[in-house]
Design a protein around this nucleic acid. Structure first.
Lengths: 231, 231
DNA sequence: CGCGGCTTTGATGTTCATCAAGTAAAGTGG
DNA sequence: CCACTTTACTTGATGAACATCAAAGCCGCG
């Protein structure tokens, strides 16, 4: 982890268009004074579940996994999330410790904002409140929907769904480098590592995908979509 | 469904202590003018997924199930929820149609508020914004946590978890009438009806519970907790 | 070069869904 | 109120889906 000691540039932040559009110049300046930006390398932990909440965090760039540890000690991945979706999504306002661990799947930049400043903004800026409420609702909705989708599918459907998720939601490309290990896919879809690998091999044998180590190329996207829906 | 044509009594509403405490008298009166209260009988549908959002709804009394229909036509139950947890939880601010169907498991009373009025309140009352944000976050958190909990358990663990949920979260009693059919439990935990029944029978044979039709009595709560945790 | 972690594949056993057949309970119409 | 119909529940038998175990290959790294 490394503190990015850059001058205050919230005015130019990519997020301004999306999240801060409802803030005036003074509020943006206040935001600048109450934020710190950190860089994390692939694999680094951003925070652990159970740690006291110190910041309202959002992901500026990179890719992270949100996860927790089960009773039996395994990892359970809640979601894999891109920039423009808050990292410390909800816990900030519904508890005093982070509910899930978060770690970087790719080199990532996280902006940490003082929760008290967010509270100030909520108190005085109604437009900001509605925006934040809407975004948090959407992020939660997506997590719930993903989980429900996965739950109703069998092994084949889950793998197909995950590949399509990486391809269309994360990388926007038919060919991409998996940001996760086979075991992490297993932790995400709730199946065993061996069966994840087996199913990927089956897809390869049937000509649906090509595998070069971590690189996946989807050759037959229609078939994959059918398997995802039916499974 | 029946419109409760009662005089405006928001001032005396049970919710005032919990949700409306941050509203002043004028705002409460405004709320009264912009709300309608409906009663639903056990089994009635409150709204269907996909219907246009007309109201911000919350449950005043009773018990409801939130569910959707899967590709294969089965019901998938998202959550079973009590009063003081909003019914139309999140969709209101993140879309223009209800994402899930909701129906009454017991006779229920639902308060429908004009979403525009909620928006007005959010615009001008910061305390209300923070309260609503916090509550919506908490409700979503709970759904996500329940789903993750269930996902990591096997059949026995899921049944035990559900029974403990009804006992401790809903009815606060060791003995209670199941508000759902065996099939609905199956839809909730994502397993087959036959196996739900079989597992309940097993629990009965082992002396963990007693079954009188829809009435369940938990005889050995420690054992049930062990099964829930380990499963 | 050798060690450890990730990946792969096959063999085996467990868990769970499905099918079928029967019983109890709850509506429904005469 | 009773016969009839329908729906919910129950149990056993079977097979499919999936986890687990084990052994071997691969790859990066000291």
């Amino acid at each position: 982890m490394k503190l990015n000691n850059i001058d205050c540039v919230c005015e130019n932040c990519d997020f301004r268009d999306i999240v801060h559009e409802c803030l005036d110049d003074d509020e943006i300046k206040g935001l600048c004074r109450n934020k710190k930006e950190f860089s994390y390398q692939k694999g680094e932990v951003i925070h652990h579940e159970g740690e006291k909440i110190t910041s309202f965090k959002y992901l500026k760039s990179g890719l992270v996994k949100v996860f927790r540890r089960t009773n039996s000690g395994d990892e359970q991945i809640v979601t894999i999330t891109r920039p423009f979706e808050f990292v410390s999504n909800m816990s900030v306002f519904s508890g005093n410790s982070y509910r899930y661990s978060v770690s970087a799947l790719e080199d990532s930049v996280v902006c940490n904002i003082d929760p008290d400043y967010i509270r100030d903004l909520l108190m005085k800026n109604g437009t900001f409140s509605i925006m934040l409420l809407t975004r948090i609702a959407e992020i939660n909705e997506r997590i719930i929907e993903q989980t429900l989708d996965l739950r109703q599918k069998n092994l084949i459907g889950r793998i197909a769904y995950s590949l399509l998720y990486f391809s269309s939601e994360i990388y926007n490309s038919r060919i991409f480098d998996l940001p996760v290990s086979r075991k992490e896919i297993a932790d995400y879809i709730g199946m065993s590592t061996a069966n994840v690998i087996r199913t990927l091999s089956d897809f390869r044998k049937e000509g649906i995908i090509r595998i070069y180590g971590k690189t996946i190329e989807i050759s037959d996207i229609q078939k994959l979509e059918i398997l995802s829906k039916r499974g």
